[in-house]
Amino acid sequence: MTRLNRSLREEQKASFMNDFLVVENVSKTYSKANGEQLVVLKDINFSVGSEEYISVIGHSGCGKSTLVRIVAGLERQSAGFLTLDGKEIRKPGAERMMVFQGYSLLPWLTVRENIHLAVDEVFKKASRAEKNSIVEEHLTMVKLTHAGDKYPDELSGGMKQRVGLARALATRPKMLLLDEPFGALDALTRPNLQQQVIDIWENHRQAVIMITHDVEEAVFMSDRVIMMTNGPSATIGKIMDIPLPRPRDRHQLQDCAQYFELRKEALNFLEDYQ
């Protein structure tokens, strides 16, 4: 390694040390039944600030969900390392909570009980009154106090996803991981819930990584957008800054030329990999 390369490497590591989440040289390989190795992700490098909202976009099969599962600790990388707040990520932890596209609610529990389940698991030493207070606070946050005693099959898709969000936020994680959180919602519910999520984040800032196929969603909600190349051996093709001022309102952005330029840039990237 040349002195220049060593210097660049040292500068990169120094920069990483100032970031909240660090993903460095991460790759993921699976062994196929015939013995061949399938490289899903290769040499993934990025970092996330402690109050930064990041989206990851790319075509199906580019390893987006695999990447966020590795950050969550639900899968182990084949190479590279990840740290959160200076500590290596080796397994799942309450400081990283994930919201899936599927609602993952227990149908025999009420909305309130579903949230309580997570709170009871994370805050084992808290009193019952303290736990109840946390649950009610987060029901209010997602505007579901009126539905606290309903069961999941009595809720709309958007309401179910808000329960999932409240359950994740109620554990007070350092990082929120969203895997296609709006993918199962109808065209009317989706933008409303996007706005609600970004409003909640504005008032309770934390690190967020969101996986999405929706370019408009990524540009509207994010500080930066990570764009993945196609798989196999998918990697980061480009990271796009989103300098749109906050707080953001979807209706106001309809008259913003910069928003449409950013949207076009992301779409052009994806079209190059069709």
Rank of each mutant, 00 (worst) to 15 (best):
N192G: 01
K174Q: 15
D120P: 07
F260C: 07
T66G: 03
S31T: 14
V142T: 12
N18T: 10
P173A: 15
R248M: 05
L139G: 05
L139R: 02
M240Y: 04
A257I: 00
K131A: 14
P173N: 15
R3E: 15
F220I: 11
I54L: 14
T235M: 04
M159S: 06
G183H: 06
V225Q: 03
S55K: 05
I115D: 05
L155W: 01
E261H: 07
I70T: 11
R3D: 14
Y259H: 09
F123E: 12
M159F: 05
L165P: 02
M17N: 10
M1E: 02
K131E: 14
E180F: 13
I44H: 05
M98E: 01
R162E: 08
V219L: 05
F182V: 10
E137F: 00
R167Q: 10
D223A: 02
A126E: 11
K264L: 06
P173Q: 15
F46K: 05
I57S: 09
L270W: 08
R162A: 03
Q196F: 04
L109T: 03
F269T: 03
S133Y: 11
R224S: 12
C62I: 04
L176M: 10
R248K: 09
Y273Q: 10
V111N: 02
N34H: 08
D149M: 01
V26T: 06
L177W: 13
M228I: 03
S27Y: 04
D214H: 08
S156W: 00
I236A: 04
V40D: 09
L270K: 05
L109Y: 08
P191Y: 15
Q195G: 04
R3W: 06
G73E: 13
L105I: 01
I57L: 14
A184K: 13
L193P: 03
E24R: 15
E113F: 02
G183P: 09
I226L: 12
I211C: 04
N25Y: 00
A218F: 09
G148Q: 14
E265C: 03
R9W: 01
R128E: 12
I236N: 08
S31C: 02
A94I: 07
Q101M: 09
Q101K: 07
T189Y: 11
V39R: 09
P152T: 07
K238S: 00
N45A: 04
G49N: 06
T83F: 02
T189D: 10
L262A: 00
I134P: 01
Y273A: 01
A184N: 12
V122R: 15
L8N: 07
E271G: 00
H251Q: 09
K64Y: 05
V56S: 03
